[in-house]
């Protein structure tokens, strides 16, 4: 019995050490999610109610014009932002990988926006895109009197402004991930390709890009989660405007929780976001875990 005591103590210590994580997981991550999902099926408005109404909140949600715009904005933003960030980030990584001068300086320049918050990003671009004083004014100052770059105040184009700011913020992150991937490729592969007489673009297209699947997946998943979380940028840059043209789902949830006091609708929207994330992330996790098991 005496010999067992230190073991038992260690075991108890381990349980103790894991108790905060376990509590957080059960109470917050599981409990709060269940709570939110439950509320979304009740008749809650300003105050929580326990009247079960099934999916009626979801009917109201998807009939809501603001939600429809939020969702379509998210899709447009998500597709353009991800493609542009991945392409630009990859090209930057490839360019930097060509043994260019001032590599460290360039890398810092491309990555520094990522260190700043979306609020800062949004406010800077709001200023740059300001039609009276911003880039439009600069273009006209150069003598192009009809130069027009007032996307941020037009309802049909404002979402592209969010894309520009988002890409500016995130392309450096993609570059960093891709550069790490490129540097991880065996130097002998490049040598073999040179002996084979392959032109560099061909090596990238046929050999390197297929080898960088993991880097692309990592970057894509990171970008995708920031797409779903998109909130600060819209708040800071346009506050959802003009009108409701740049609303996004996360903002819809927050506004309905705290300003419009419609808890039922807000939680239905939040649950819809969760389902979207699950649809994106679940296949990726499945592939990852299968790959790990195979390895």
């Amino acid at each position: 019995m005496l010999a067992l005591r230190p073991r038992l103590a260690s075991k108890l210590s381990a349980w103790l050490a894991l108790s905060p994580a376990t509590t957080i997981l059960v109470v917050v991550y599981v409990g709060c999610t269940a709570w939110t999902v439950w509320i979304s099926m009740t008749a809650s408005r300003m105050l929580p109610s326990s009247t079960f109404v099934g999916l009626r909140q979801y009917d109201a949600l998807f009939a809501n014009e603001r939600w429809q715009i939020s969702v379509s904005n998210l899709v447009v933003f998500g597709v353009l932002f991800m493609i542009a960030s991945l392409v630009l980030g990859f090209l930057l990584a490839v360019a930097i990988d060509q043994r260019v001068r001032a590599e460290n300086v360039l890398r810092s320049v491309f990555l520094y926006p990522f260190s700043m918050s979306f609020i800062v990003t949004g406010l800077v671009w709001q200023w740059l895109l300001n039609p009276t004083y911003g880039i439009q004014a600069v273009g006209r100052g150069f003598g192009f009197e009809t130069f027009r770059f007032d996307w941020i105040v037009r309802q049909e184009t404002v979402i592209y402004c969010l894309v520009i700011a988002g890409v500016w913020h995130a392309a450096g992150l993609v570059m960093a991930i891709m550069l790490a991937g490129l540097r991880g490729i065996d130097e002998d592969i490049w040598k073999a390709a040179r002996v084979d007489g392959l032109p560099p673009w061909r090596v990238y297209v046929s050999i390197v890009i297929p080898m960088m699947g993991a880097s692309f997946a990592t970057a894509a998943v990171l970008l995708a989660t920031s797409v779903v979380r998109l909130y600060d940028l819209s708040v800071a840059m346009t506050n959802g405007g003009p009108g409701i043209a740049s609303e996004v789902p996360a903002k819809f949830v927050m506004d309905h929780l705290f300003e419009r006091q419609n808890i039922g609708l807000a939680t239905a929207a939040a649950t819809s976001m969760l389902i979207t994330v699950a649809a994106v992330v679940a296949p990726w996790i499945y592939i990852q875990s299968r790959r790990r098991r195979a390895a």
Binding site: A192, R194, I207
Partner: peptide
Amino acid sequence: EPKDRGIAMVFQSYALY
């Protein structure tokens, strides 16, 4: 260029694509 030298090469890490 290596391809024009009439050589072929085998690497330690195999360097297969």
